[in-house]
């Protein structure tokens, strides 16, 4: 028993790593989601195939397998990553693949006449996406993106298995040192839950922001 404040400090350090992983992983996932999602709608077929292969591959194998592959197999190909880099890479690519389908679905659900109107007023492809399609597609993506971000947060626990000292890893350390099981695990469960509530609240706020000014556009 004894030094609880020290153990709490340990877990809070882990919480910081978890938060870091979640933020960086989400950033990478967002980039991948838009890149692959829009590439799946590209007029150039090989680009579509590439995006399709990426999505199927990362949705078809589990995050756990991908993480181990990145961490244990890539070094043999000459690419050595730190556990944090491996974690961000695997989480970002994995969740990005799910996000790509969300982006694709949202863009496709923008009514056809919007595309036609853009062509009629002679907007370039880029202008069409930037000013007409994406502003309408974004509100449709956000709720699912919120769920994906929470899935990513939950996925970060897996990185503890490649010895990255996130919250789950630190809880195991505390368990090993104190022999107490309930307190460390209950603590991190509450912290994880608080983080996922925070993501949920943030997403709802964002949803209100991006739908502002769209009233009347959609029924």
């Amino acid at each position: 028993m004894g030094d609880w404040s020290g153990y709490i400090g340990l877990i809070l350090q882990g919480a910081l790593v978890t938060a870091q992983l979640t933020v960086m992983g989400t950033a990478l996932a967002l980039v991948m989601a838009f890149t692959a999602g829009l590439a799946r709608l590209a007029p150039f077929a090989p680009l579509r195939w590439l995006a399709r292969a990426y999505v199927e591959f990362f949705r078809g194998t589990s995050i756990f397998v991908q993480l181990f592959w990145v961490y244990f197999v890539l070094p043999f190909a000459g690419v050595s990553l730190s556990p944090l880099q491996a974690g961000v890479l695997a989480l970002g690519l994995n969740v990005g693949a799910y996000g790509a389908e969300v982006v694709r679905g949202a863009v496709l659900s923008v009514p056809r006449d919007q595309f036609e109107a853009c062509i009629a007023v002679n907007l370039s492809r880029f202008q069409r996406m930037r000013h007409v399609i994406l502003p309408q597609a974004l509100p449709l993506m956000l709720p699912t993106f919120g769920n994906n971000a929470i899935e990513l947060l939950k996925g970060t626990a897996v990185v503890s298995l490649i010895s990255l000292s996130d919250m789950t890893f630190q809880a195991q350390v505390v368990r090993a040192q104190t022999g107490s099981t309930l307190i460390p695990f209950a603590t991190i469960l509450v912290l994880y839950f608080a983080m996922s509530l925070l993501i949920g609240a943030g997403m709802r706020w964002l949803e209100r922001r991006v739908t502002r000014g769209l009233d009347g556009v959609r029924t």
Binding site: A157, V158, T168, L189, Y192, F193
Partner: peptide, 20 residues
């Protein structure tokens, strides 16, 4: 709560905490 927390930690709870 179950949906908002990682499965891995839940597994640890079942495997390590319940025996206590």
């Amino acid at each position: 709560f179950i949906r908002g927390t990682p499965l891995l930690v839940q597994l640890y709870v079942i495997f390590y905490v319940l025996p206590d």
